[in-house]
Design a protein around this nucleic acid. Sequence first.
DNA 1: ACCCCTATTGCAATCGATTGCATAAGCCAT
DNA 2: ATGGCTTATGCAATCGATTGCAATAGGGGT
Lengths: 362, 362
Amino acid sequence: MIRKKARRTMGGETYKSMAGQKDNEVPAIRTLADLARVAGVSTGTVSRALAGKSLVNVETRERIQTLAREHGFRPNQMASKLRSRRTGVIGVVIPLGHELRQHISDPFFLTLVGYLADELTEGGYDLMLSRALPDGTSDWLDRIAGSGMVDGVIVIGQSDQYDLIEAASHSYRPLVVWGQHRAGQNHCVVGTDNAAGGRIAVEHLVASGATSLAFLGDTTGIEIADRLRGATEAATAAGVPIRHIPIPLATDAMGPEIEAAMASQCSGINGVVAASDLVAMAALRCLHQKGMRVPEDVQIVGFDDLPLAAQTSPPLTTIRQEIAAGARAMVERLRALVEKEPATSLVMAPTLVVRQSTRAEG
Amino acid sequence: MIRKKARRTMGGETYKSMAGQKDNEVPAIRTLADLARVAGVSTGTVSRALAGKSLVNVETRERIQTLAREHGFRPNQMASKLRSRRTGVIGVVIPLGHELRQHISDPFFLTLVGYLADELTEGGYDLMLSRALPDGTSDWLDRIAGSGMVDGVIVIGQSDQYDLIEAASHSYRPLVVWGQHRAGQNHCVVGTDNAAGGRIAVEHLVASGATSLAFLGDTTGIEIADRLRGATEAATAAGVPIRHIPIPLATDAMGPEIEAAMASQCSGINGVVAASDLVAMAALRCLHQKGMRVPEDVQIVGFDDLPLAAQTSPPLTTIRQEIAAGARAMVERLRALVEKEPATSLVMAPTLVVRQSTRAEG
DNA sequence: ACCCCTATTGCAATCGATTGCATAAGCCAT
DNA sequence: ATGGCTTATGCAATCGATTGCAATAGGGGT
């Protein structure tokens, strides 16, 4: 045990004294103080020079900047952020509340993450990605928000954590959520009018001849529940029957379940509203295997308009969510909140993108 | 000017004194010192107690931990990381060297990011996501590696930055790259044997009756170039002609270009090796529109085996890359490197996944 | 009764950059 | 020549947690 202890200590020492000297002949400049010594000025001046402040002499500033570049010096961010009380990092969290099987690699989430990464990088922020598995303790949001590591938090999808998010938003301000808006809610949300999306989908199906509908998708997530609500309303208004088939949204488990569900419950259905493009794709494939033609025998409308919706055969008619615009809006709002300014929620109108998985209207 | 200065100072003060008091009646405990005062001990003891060290009395430790939980106190990570010289953050970078149009939301990258997020979170690390647009200055890797914000860096895809990565690996150790392995390289890489993948694809196509082949995909990325090389070797060995059609891999621009390319160059082709599943999907759709049947008229083999490869119609025969296993391997290796232990590169064997876009062999 | 030892706890230096304030130098006007 | 002003720089406190070392108290052995 003593030996182990000794070894560890020595290891630490070795690390410290050798760090950065392996491939550099020069003594390696690691801190502001090092650079200050080389430049013959104080650390304060170096700090100001590197920050490009006008307080320092132009000549001095450039000399120091050149020196820093030559030595590949970059100030330690940890120290900087500690002192300036600003991290320049935004936390992006995906709560996986219902359906633990729904992996973080869900295409919709990842597409949104991609756009967020672009927007945040553009604005000089870094992006810290976390997945949260809410358990009983329910401190997943506090943990990341209160860690002192991030200036603000973006939550992608409310899952079944709506109440917790709403509660957290009262004490933690720089918080923007992708999801469903409810009247009177406190937290700033950006999302799509899901009910309208469901309605539009059904109206399109009815207009192009569908007479017996199904809604495919589990409605634990409140966004999905709202899509079903809109779809049901429109179906009722049109006098067309609609059946709800709550298959899970998890990518990997979708295949078998959808086949079982469709085999047993879908006889006579000629119009399908899918909770997402992925569900629609699974349905497409399932129908194809059963020898049903799309859109001749059954019409399908997806939801999301992911890039790959245009790549299926037939290409998918779908309800488009403006993911890129949404990402931009979220970052704008979060920045406002970080600056202590107010921000209002945004509910975007969904649009129908007609491709070839439905017939022409009329 | 004086007024402005004064205002700024006051603003700062206000922020400081009011922070965290908005929704809390209690004076809010923000620092170790605050908690120490409440608990009647020193900050050192609190620090040790929260870290769960055995040095402190069990009783005291539990009292402090309870107190911390009650007040929702969480130590400031910036300070902690500064002192302990360990950030617990891994940087994940996607260099977009060739093809700036290739968005960060490329499904393959994002799938890998998803798995990495899972693996890293599991291991107690956070993940900082960056996209890098290498320009002339070429310091994108140093910038993130030397920022002091991360313990290590994972680079997803070498793009056309192989030399820069190789160079950086000499001075920056905790670095693991997803991509192509070259003999004698210094940086630790995890990836697939791309040449073997190309070879397998061609062998399968030939075995199932293809007599005139095409390879679809731009080969600026060295991984893709290697796939083409393997494919060409196998075609030559089998005495079957193969044509290279360098369409770009960018998702959005793929549609039109692939159609133009296939229209002009693909007459007589009955076997296609795609550089990725996405390219394969585009080809699939294109052929479908032209009335060609897959696999009866043309057979297609994709590359990657993304989850959605099973969802196309017909489902895609493809060369599988072990993305999940790769992510795990990368994290394992990175952890070793962070601990100053050696790590060796890993080249995984690709496997053929036969679905319905190719005919039965023999 | 005295000394040694161990289990706890406090003290203060430290990580590295930032920034308010003080200081110094240079310049102009009186 | 002196005071006022601008510009440039240095000094030292500060951000908040960690940790080596010192100090204290209580327990046991002789």
